[in-house]
Design a binder for these strands. Structure first.
Length: 274
DNA sequence: CCCCTATCCTGAGGGC
DNA sequence: TGCCCTCAGGATAGGG
């Protein structure tokens, strides 16, 4: 599941191939993936526009286009956005293909279809609430002082459920929520209101740490994640707890406990994490 | 307002 | 081998 480090890996991969390129043609193979914008006019609106910038906000990828549009992509659970040559056969579940003026292609694929594509000017997208409100960026300067600590300590929800809320922290998903809780030695099932200031501080230091390390390793590829060229990352081999329920804790050797928080599989060490 | 659960969807993996 | 069942989860609608 692409979270912040995976999405950032893709953005950095794609940026040098996309910026400055013009869109020659767009093929919206499965119109239902377009959640904002008109499917019928979509190809005409994109054709001829130049890609000016490729950026990320939370788990959203933004292609800023020359006529003022943003083409926005969210990868959901199983989405991928990759460069390909026009001669490569398209994989099953490819929903959008964009031909560029250098005869390369940008392909959007998403078997499970939890992802989405949006097209509009930033004003249109924000005016009609097409994009959700997003909290601070964990990798931005000032993250630990951004007010996240206060919102975590103010909620009665389980701390991991709050971390997964994109309005609280942008870009955090199931993997790195578990990893950050482990590194901070905090039980993910604790209520936010039960955390001390010292504990929220540890958590807000741990989250960027685990994300930077995952970014260095080009993301976690459990089943579906692929970078901008279709290759796997290596961060999943370095994870402390995610996917390791029932296995020994890397720190103390105790058996890692697996439960559910907010409908998500959650793994933690009963001895290390209080 | 706040919190929680069900829902969308396909493919992988287990059991028999 | 093949069939059926369960499970994985990001975002969000709707209920309590």
């Amino acid at each position: 599941m692409p979270e912040l480090p995976e999405v950032e890996t893709i953005v950095r991969d794609l940026r040098p191939h996309l910026v400055g390129r013009a869109i020659a043609k767009a093929d919206l193979i499965r119109p239902s993936v377009l959640r904002f914008g008109q499917p019928d006019s979509f190809p005409f609106r994109l054709a001829g526009q130049q890609i000016r910038a490729v950026t990320r906000r939370g788990k959203f990828i933004h292609l800023r286009l020359s006529e003022g549009d943003d083409l926005v992509v969210h990868l959901g659970m199983t989405g991928s956005l990759t460069m390909a040559s026009a001669s490569t056969p398209r994989a099953l579940h490819t929903h959008l293909v964009i031909d560029l003026d250098d005869r390369s292609q940008l392909r959007y694929r998403d078997p499970r279809r939890f992802g989405r594509v949006l097209l509009g000017t930033p004003a249109q997208l924000s005016r009609l609430g097409a994009l959700p409100r997003l909290g601070p960026e964990p990798l931005a300067r000032g993250f630990t002082e951004s007010g996240v600590a206060e919102s975590l300590r103010a909620t009665s929800r389980q701390i991991k459920a709050a971390l997964l809320d994109q309005a609280v922290v942008a870009g955090c998903g199931n993997i790195y929520a578990d990893e950050a809780c482990f590194l901070a030695r905090i039980r993910p099932i604790r209520r936010g209101s039960s955390l001390t200031r010292a504990e929220t501080t540890r958590l807000l230091l741990a989250l960027p740490l685990v994300m930077r390390e995952a970014l260095r390793l080009r993301g976690s590829s459990f089943s579906d994640f692929r970078d901008g060229f279709g290759a796997k990352g290596e961060a999943h081999e370095a994870l402390f707890v995610y996917g390791r329920g029932g296995l020994p804790c890397v720190r103390c050797g105790a058996t890692l406990r697996q439960t559910r928080v907010g409908g998500r599989t959650t793994v933690y060490c009963q001895r290390c994490q209080r």
